[in-house]
Design a protein around this nucleic acid. Structure first.
Lengths: 207, 207
DNA sequence: GCCAAATTTGGACAGTCGTCAAGATTTTCT
DNA sequence: AGAAAATCTTGACGACTGTCCAAATTTGGC
């Protein structure tokens, strides 16, 4: 019997925590492929190199595994556009770059974002994930706001909408084109990349 | 043995179809409460006055029941703001009314919209609902566009965004405040009602 | 009121699910 | 190398799922 807390391997790396990472990775893989409703512990184990029983050695139960996986998911999700912000030197560079980055995300990471929306929705029904989901959502909102603020700086204007509204706008945009993209519309990513700069500019319009 | 198609009762009303409606209603009730992932046929039957076996008398299986229910759901969902459009005589009346209507929807029908987002997300994983979901989404988009067009008419301007972008914007807005609302933030509906008119006006800004 | 058709019930079925624990295996330390 | 601890496998459990069906019940035409 081993408690999770007091675990230090000889070489200083925590092997226990390492396995948890590894299993959470497999969990995310299964979730992204199948969706929350159809992902079982046995499916997750099959994506890993272990048998299904091992999950209860590293996690107290399904909810802890999934909660941990959601937290891990966060890391990929909340810093995506930061280098676009860092590298842009003009407002036009920024809005074009932002649009291109979102389009690229849609093209390459569609299934991961499908998972994100699925988990966020589950949090509307289940209390368990809600806190983590809200925290991730806040950090995504902050990520978008960094883009908006940088644009304001570069263009010498001030945003006319709140942080929440700016995030809701781009998130809704992405989700909409994700739906179209996964439904097979080839042009979805291009359309998104084209729409984003225009919407960004519009956030600064004085009505 | 009775086939569904050739069924006409004495009084002209189709009792078979009536039961299907009734059961689909119970299905929607269960789905809205529990979410797609946790809704079973026995749960649905328990919401109705029947036993679980009857579902296979009126529907070929679970997917047909759910598909039928999704279609029924559509009716509630795609004409919600039409009277706001009809009654507004000035641009200001329209944007205020639209905001108030969305806020009211958030307050009274939060669980139904939670269901809608859940089903739309399921369609990203399962082929079965996708066609119906896309059709409903198109009609919701058209509903939003009617508001935008009417506003253009009243204000004497022309919208600067496409139909898809306009819909994505308001849908993202609603979804974001729905999350906050269901997470317990009391002010969410008010904030939404306040944000909507401003966003609507901004769709007409020439960047 | 009778009989056949339509409808409803409740249980059985084959799977799958999360959970758990006993035993086999591997790793680590002396 | 041998003992102890950590790790992994395997099979079992009770509960739940969608599906199907035989029997019970209700309905409608005569």
């Amino acid at each position: 019997m081993t408690q999770a807390k007091e675990r230090i391997s000889r070489r200083g790396v925590d092997k226990f925590a390492q396995r948890r990472e590894q299993l959470a990775e497999s969990a995310l893989q299964a979730l992204a492929e199948l969706g929350y409703a159809r992902t079982s512990l046995r499916e997750i184990a099959q994506k890993s190199d272990f048998s299904h029983g091992v999950l209860h050695y590293y996690f107290a139960g399904k909810v802890e595994l999934l909660t941990y996986s959601v937290r891990k998911f966060e890391e990929v999700c909340v810093t995506r556009y930061d280098d676009v912000v860092a590298e842009a030197h003009t407002a036009e560079e920024l809005d074009r770059g932002f649009g291109a980055a979102m389009a690229a995300t849609l093209r390459t990471d569609a299934v991961m974002h499908r998972l994100w929306y699925d988990l966020r929705n589950q949090s509307l029904f289940e209390e368990s994930f809600r806190a983590d989901v809200l925290e991730i959502d806040d950090r995504r909102q902050a990520m978008i706001w960094r883009v908006v603020e940088r644009y304001a700086e570069l263009a010498g204007t001030v945003p006319q909408v709140s942080e929440a509204v700016a995030y809701a706008t781009f998130d809704g945009l992405f989700q909409q084109f994700l739906l179209r993209h996964l439904a097979g519309r080839e042009t979805a990513a291009d359309e998104l990349g084209e729409a984003v700069p225009r919407v960004l500019k519009q956030l600064f319009c004085t009505a």
